[in-house]
Amino acid sequence: MSTRMEDRELTWYEGIKDALPTFIGYMSIGIAAGIVGASSNFSVLEIGLLSALVYAGAAQFIIFALLVQGTPISVIVFTTFIVNLRHLLMSMTLAPVLTKYSLLKNIGIGALLTDETFGVAVTRMAKKEPINDRWMYGLNLSAYAGWIMASVLGATAGKWISNPKAFGLDFALTAMFVALLVLQLQNLKESRLKLYLTLILYTAILMFILSMFVSISIAVLLSTIIAAAIGAVMDR
């Protein structure tokens, strides 16, 4: 029975169906991103292109803020690179089950991978359920289309919302990641939950200490990297 399940070829449609919760989530966060972008004096076209070409929610919120402040392009590119560096680890996690596909297909899958679609894929892997290239493309492209549509809708609506912070829209992405964290913690064993909560505490302490010597943005990056390294050693 398990062998037949592993050999079964998943379809695009199944990937699209599994992407539905992500698609719905992206509609809300994408609209918020579009509104924030519009309030930062970006045009609908610029926001749409940014969503299509960068396709990274956290990075887009950061780019809006940095460009408004007149930050040099080199700093923006480097910051975006650091923020999205986690995608390297996510892609490496999925790589072993996708090695049978061509390099071009893997590039396409990796380029559209996000935290949420990775979560859907890795959950199937944890349940010993199969994934394949068609399923991944259905999953990724559905989420991609949803994000672009939502960003454009938000950019259009943003013309009538001068201060998105008054509605808490600038906190929308952070709220989504907090919700994802809570959902992950709920399904953990007690020993692993203690480990992760300890690492979160380490991160907060390191962030506080490092912020006395460097900027808060650098402190966040350094404390996260150090805590992740500690976690890798403790988790073995």
Rank of each mutant, 00 (worst) to 15 (best):
R134M: 12
F118E: 04
Q184H: 08
V83E: 05
V178I: 14
L85W: 10
A157I: 13
L66K: 02
L188R: 09
T114Q: 08
D115V: 11
N132T: 08
K100W: 02
V77L: 14
R192I: 03
T174V: 11
G146Y: 02
M136L: 14
S162G: 09
S74R: 07
N84L: 06
M176C: 06
Q60M: 13
R124I: 09
V75S: 04
F177Q: 06
G108L: 15
M176K: 02
T79Q: 03
K189C: 05
M92Y: 14
V97M: 10
N132M: 09
R124T: 12
F81Q: 05
K165A: 13
M90A: 13
G154N: 01
V122I: 15
V97E: 15
T80V: 12
P164L: 07
A59E: 10
A111F: 15
A155H: 03
F177T: 03
V122A: 12
E190I: 12
P164C: 07
L103A: 15
S162C: 00
M90D: 13
I76E: 08
M92E: 12
S162N: 09
I131W: 12
A126W: 07
F78R: 03
F118K: 02
G110Q: 10
M90Y: 15
S162A: 08
V182M: 07
P96E: 11
P130C: 09
M125G: 10
R124L: 13
G57S: 11
P130G: 07
G70F: 06
W160A: 11
A143G: 10
I148S: 00
K128I: 05
T93V: 10
V120L: 11
G158W: 00
L112G: 14
S162M: 04
V122L: 06
L139Y: 05
N140A: 03
N106T: 12
G154F: 00
I148K: 01
E129F: 04
M92A: 15
A166W: 01
K165I: 05
A179F: 03
F177H: 05
G57F: 08
A58P: 11
G108N: 15
E129V: 02
N84V: 06
N84A: 08
K159A: 13
T123Q: 15
T156H: 00
Q60I: 10
W135D: 02
V182T: 06
Q184M: 07
R134S: 12
R86K: 08
T80E: 08
G146H: 03
L67G: 01
A155S: 10
L173P: 05
P130F: 13
I161K: 01
G146A: 10
H87N: 09
A145I: 14
G168D: 03
S162E: 10
L188Q: 14
W160G: 00
F167Q: 05
I62W: 04
N163A: 10
Q69A: 14
P130N: 12
T99M: 15
A150R: 04
H87M: 11
L180Q: 02
V178K: 02
K100I: 06
Y144M: 02
L141P: 01
P164T: 09
F78L: 15
P72D: 04
P72K: 05
W147H: 00
L173T: 04
M125Y: 14
I131T: 11
L141M: 11
A157N: 06
V83Q: 04
A166H: 08
N163E: 12
V83D: 04
M90I: 13
L89F: 15
K127G: 04
G138E: 01
G110Y: 08
E129N: 09
